[in-house]
Structures are given as structure tokens and as C-alpha cells.
Computed example of a mutant assay.
Amino acid sequence: MLTTALTAVSFWLSFEALHDLASAHRLQGERAWAWPATVDTFIGVGELLILRASLMRRVDPWAIALTAAGSLGSIALNVAGVGVSHDPLDYVTAAVPPVAALLAFGVLMRQVHEFLLSRQSVLTAPPVPSGPPVTPVSETVTPEEPEAPEEPQEAAEAPEDEPELTEEPEPVTEPKKPRQELTQREQIDLVVRSLYDALGNQRPATRHMVAALRDAGLPCSDGTAREARKRVETAEPHLKSFPDAIAA
């Protein structure tokens, strides 16, 4: 909310200064108010394209060029509107609004980026199992002992040859299947779940979860940590009754 307000105020101050500059150079009425958009709009368009490129995991040189051109042009024109002044603070005051607009809008786009990534991970990730996967134990079948062959009855004229005994092969048992590796989302949930025990039956704060995920080499944004805590407490509702741990 504060980031949005700062962005709006910064752009308004920059527009106001550019409007005064346009009014002093033969532009009046609607044209004087529309002219600043030809400069400051490049900042918004460029940063939106940068957000789009980051979601697609690539770099867009055109987006960077548009953002740089809009911000540098806005700063230069705001400073030029001061004219000749012996007080350096006049130039600083004129340059602050376009710089603040660039930074505030960048922070806002960063928050939108993290929110969209957290929503995408929730929609695409598989459901979290309530316990570790159980691998079935293969049953070993013991072979029955072969019955002793009956002795051939003596023939009246000539004895028959005794049949040769062949050993039966031992049954082959299938080896146990190895434990399946956990997905990244399951690893995140296990790290967050272990914090409830490590903190002495207390609900971990966002800072605790982010630090633990960073130490485990897993994604550690604030949104990822909160979504993992929500999934863990959905699987084990009694964890919600634990007191909140103080983030140190």
C-alpha cells in the first residue's frame, strides 16, 4: 500500500514539473498535461516489460533501454525546468520525483513478481503427503521341500533305472525399491515442519522460515515460506494452536 502511494505521488510530482516546463514553452491546456506522458510513461512501460521478461526467465534489452531512456529523460527535463539557479538544492529538489518514481515503481513490480511466482508454485505443485512415503516390503516365499521320490518297485524280469534327481533352483526375490526422492516442495514443507519442534512447539515466524530455507539451499522468499507454513498447518491442524515464536 505504501509502495503504491509513493509511486503515485512521485509520478504526480514529476508530471507537475514537466507540465510547468511545457506551459512555459508554448503548450497550453490539455496539451501541456499530455506532454509529460511522452516522457514518464516510458518508465512504466519499460518496467512492465522487465516484469514480463523476468516471469519468462529471460532478459529483454528493449525493456531496459525504454526504462533508462524514460528515467534519464525525465530527470534531465525536471532539472532543466529549474533554469539558472545558484542554490544546488533547487536541482536536487527537481531530480528527486523522477528518481523516486523509478525506484518506487521498480519495488512495486518486484512485489508483483514474487506474488505471481508464489501463486504459480501453489497451482502447479503436487499435493503434500501427510507422512513420508512408505515402500512396500516384498514378501519372500519359502519353497516347499521336495518330497522324496518313491523307490521303484522291483520288476519281475529286469529292474528299471532310477530317475536322476535334479535340484530345484532357489526362488528369486525382487530387491526392495529405493526410497523415492522428495520433490522441492516436499523438502520445503519438511524444513518448515521441523521448525515447530526446533522452536519448542511454537509457530515459526517468516524470518525463521526464510533463514532455514536459505540454509537448506531452497527457495526462500517470504511468499514461499508463508505458503509452506499454510500447507503444513492444513495437513496438521493442531499446529495452529501453538503460540507464535518471536522473530529474533
Rank of each mutant, 00 (worst) to 15 (best):
L2M: 07
L2G: 08
T3S: 10
T3R: 08
T3Y: 15
T4Q: 13
L6C: 13
T7V: 08
V9H: 11
L13K: 06
S14T: 11
A17T: 04
D20A: 14
Q28M: 11
E30G: 09
A32H: 07
W33V: 10
W35N: 01
V39P: 01
F42I: 06
I43D: 01
I43A: 04
G44L: 13
E47G: 14
R57Y: 08
V59H: 09
W62K: 07
A63P: 05
T67Y: 15
G70R: 09
S71G: 14
I75E: 01
A76V: 03
L77F: 00
V79S: 03
A80N: 06
V82R: 07
V84N: 13
P88D: 06
L89H: 13
D90I: 10
D90K: 07
D90V: 09
A94P: 01
V96E: 04
A101F: 15
F105P: 04
L116M: 11
L117T: 06
S121H: 07
L123Y: 08
P127S: 03
V128W: 01
S130L: 12
S130C: 10
P132E: 05
V134T: 10
T140I: 04
T142N: 02
E144C: 02
P146E: 03
A148T: 09
E151S: 00
E151F: 03
P152F: 11
Q153V: 10
A155L: 07
A158R: 14
E162M: 06
L165T: 13
E167C: 03
P171I: 00
T173M: 05
P175A: 04
P175D: 05
P178F: 08
R179Y: 14
Q184R: 03
R185K: 11
R185M: 07
Q187C: 04
I188M: 00
D189F: 00
L190Y: 14
Y196T: 08
G200W: 01
G200K: 00
G200I: 02
N201Q: 14
R203H: 07
R203A: 13
P204F: 08
T206H: 12
H208M: 02
M209V: 03
V210F: 09
V210I: 07
A211D: 11
L213T: 01
A216S: 09
P219N: 02
P219S: 02
G223V: 01
T224C: 11
E227A: 09
V232K: 00
A245F: 02
A248F: 11
A248V: 11
